[in-house]
Nucleic acid binder design. Structure first.
Lengths: 275, 275
DNA sequence: CGTCTTATTTTGTACATACATTATCGCACC
DNA sequence: GGTGCGATAATGTATGTACAAAATAAGACG
């Protein structure tokens, strides 16, 4: 019986439903509140997220339970469950067994700034991207530099690299790579692929730490980047870790008025909602 | 038959399975590759993500299909489907009908930096957080300031605010709020709750744009923040939008050596994997 | 030999069912 | 009146089943 009752996914109108199995429902055919676009669980997600984003369901408020929602929208409990569980996973809702489902509060502090590869940024701006390896040396941790999260004596590759946009220096990069974790890097010449991209392509990572600060350029950095000493620069420190081992530690230094971090963060469900 | 075959969720050992339905499988009881912790679909997620993160399944490689995985792990296809579909949603895998499931390539450029409320940051550092409203005025867009993404003539609230940590100024904030979108803000005195937090609590947003730059402090900003002119400062611009209407536009200016953005981004599945 | 059509494989969605899990509510009992 | 404990209501997980949708592969036909 339900086989016939399922909404056809080709004919998006949803107007051909049988009604034998839900004689009680006053609306015969169209499912109220749903837009008929795409899979049912997605329609329910949109419907529920819409209620929240439009302010009809306030933060902290309790939603109807799965049973009620399922009869409200005219779908099975599992379909409702999938939609609601996804919204909960995305942070829109909070669910507690026995207690119910609530609109999440304070989800708004989750601003995030995507940090992209400098080569991509330059290329997308339509400029010519180049880089130069300024220095490359193999050493052991604790000798000339100390990398706190790696044991002393670990073999390390140290790389200094300058990134240019249309011939103008925009970013200096000092990178340490853990040769115990990534021995292949020792054989890589980096004559066409910059170290950042090479690592990103070759080595998986499971977590990364970032610190972004503003600093005044020192004399030598100013000379390298072609600015006057004291110019404001963006300093980004990144350490990536995989399987509990530090992979690489990088310091980027970028000229303040030639480089900025920017990006749009979008609420997951807003994407699907086109809000 | 399958009802009995289901793994008990209380006895986590998983040692009580019947084997009538899979006589071909040589391992009789324990499901191979699974750790017995938590729900089955989560175990499968960990098992699969582990194969990838440990490098046993390389980027671009094709995975066994759902049928094969289900008999490999000794669970139903739906359970496998749920696990794999979640991994795909998290960006670990790419799925194409008829073609199969593949390990995603190039997922590594997705570094993200969380941007937190300054009050939270100061409080977590164990310092005393205070703020002062320096200026507050109502005006119309285009009069003294122009907010590009809002129509001219729209009523706007402009706020200048200084944030302090243990009495030391660390951040200056200049904020514009769209009074058409958030009329309630006109009545809010902001004597105990800072504007940032008030807005975050009151108004939902569906997308936000950030730009982070490094700038040298101008004379007046330097005076406000108590640094010498020219000191490197972090400049953050944020515009939040909801239902296609700009809600608020903020400029934060923070002293370089008193404030930094930092945060850890973790691969979703790595969280569950404890890698 | 190329092109169109048809078959097949694989993932995607929906529903039913059953039971597990967990927090809350309310009542009995001290 | 508090306290514990069992009933209960809600979500969570697992499986079976049945199709739908999409994309590739294979074959028919010009």
């Amino acid at each position: 019986m339900q086989g016939l009752a399922r909404q056809s996914l080709t004919d998006r109108g949803g107007a051909e439903r049988g009604l034998a199995d839900r004689a009680a429902a006053p609306q015969p055919d169209f499912r109220p509140g749903l837009d008929g676009k795409g899979p049912l669980f997605g329609q329910i997600k949109r419907a529920v997220a819409g209620q929240i984003l439009r302010g009809h369901w306030q933060a902290g408020e309790r939603l109807p339970n799965e049973e009620q929602l399922s009869s409200l929208y005219g779908v099975s409990r599992q379909t409702v469950h999938k939609a609601i569980a996804l919204l909960a996973r995305e942070g829109f809702l909070v669910r507690r067994r026995r207690a119910g489902t609530f609109v999440a509060t304070g989800r708004h502090d989750r601003f995030a700034l995507p940090i992209e590869d400098i080569g991509d940024v330059v290329a997308r701006a339509g400029s010519l991207y180049e880089f130069r390896i300024l220095d490359r040396r193999s050493l052991r941790n604790g000798e000339a530099v100390r990398w706190p999260d790696v044991p002393d004596g670990t073999p390390i590759l140290s790389l200094d690299c300058l990134h240019l946009s249309d011939g103008t220096p925009i970013q200096f990069e000092r990178r340490l790579v853990n040769l115990d974790a990534v021995p292949e890097v020792a054989a890589e010449p980096f004559d066409s692929v910059p170290p950042s991209r090479w690592l990103v392509d070759q080595v998986p990572w499971s977590s990364a730490e970032h610190t972004v600060r503003a600093v005044n350029a020192t004399a030598d950095m100013a000379a390298l980047l072609g600015v006057e000493p004291g110019a404001a620069c963006l300093s980004i420190r990144r350490q990536t870790v995989h399987l509990n081992r530090a992979i690489t530690l990088v310091h980027f230094l970028s000229v303040g008025d030639r480089f900025s971090l920017s990006g749009a963060s979008i609420t997951d469900s807003a994407t699907e909602l086109n809000l």
